[in-house]
């Protein structure tokens, strides 16, 4: 029962902070609430016994991506209110569209075959050892290719961020 309560608590934290990402006026508050969402999701990964993913999630999202977002917010001097006014009509239409999407997705996903084979609390697949074995045997080529992707992303970011000479 404890697990279900923990799940509900983490879900409430994640959904609340995700809502606050949209509702906060200042971009820097949005970024901080996004960090809270990411930590709640890391808790979800731990609950699924996916420890490797939880650690990678905290390092990549709460570490790297949040720093990038914060630096961009400060670099672009966005932390002023009222820069992006929007009408009430747009908000209402978006809320209705979002609600409809929610209903449609739930309706379609619930018709799946949700047979469960194993209990995540005792399954060992999320541990670093077992995931590493899969990663370095079955998915070795995509893993190596992702390093090339990172290299090209790094080169691209540096090239774009460089100041023009003239």
């Amino acid at each position: 029962m404890f697990q279900v309560y923990l799940f509900l608590f983490l879900s409430c934290v994640a959904l609340f902070s995700a809502m606050m990402v949209l509702l906060s006026k200042k971009p820097i508050h949005s970024v901080l609430y996004l960090t809270l969402t990411f930590f709640a999701l890391a808790g979800h990964y731990i609950l699924l016994n996916a420890q490797f993913l939880a650690v990678v999630h905290v390092i990549v999202y709460a570490g790297a991506i949040m720093v990038l977002f914060l630096f961009t917010v400060m670099l672009l001097n966005l932390n002023k209110e009222g820069q992006f006014p929007k009408t009430k009509l747009v908000k209402i239409i978006a809320a209705i569209a979002g609600g409809l999407l929610f209903v449609v997705l739930i309706g379609s996903l619930k018709s799946f075959d949700l047979a469960t084979v194993s209990n995540p609390a005792v399954s060992q697949i999320g541990l670093v050892k077992n995931l590493g074995k899969t990663l370095f045997s079955q998915y070795l080529l995509p893993f190596e290719l992702s390093s090339i992707l990172f290299l090209s992303a790094m080169v691209g970011a540096v090239m774009l961020g460089k100041k023009d000479k003239e």
Binding site: V117, N130, L131, Q138, M154, A157
Partner: peptide, 27 residues
């Protein structure tokens, strides 16, 4: 985790890799 298939979690790892690259370029 519920299907006891590690491929899904490897895919999540790759999605995180691509998302990190995407955010760096996008920003």
């Amino acid at each position: 985790a519920y299907r006891n298939d590690p491929s899904g979690q490897v895919f999540v790892f790759f999605i995180m890799v691509v998302a990190a690259a995407e955010i760096a370029i996008g920003l």
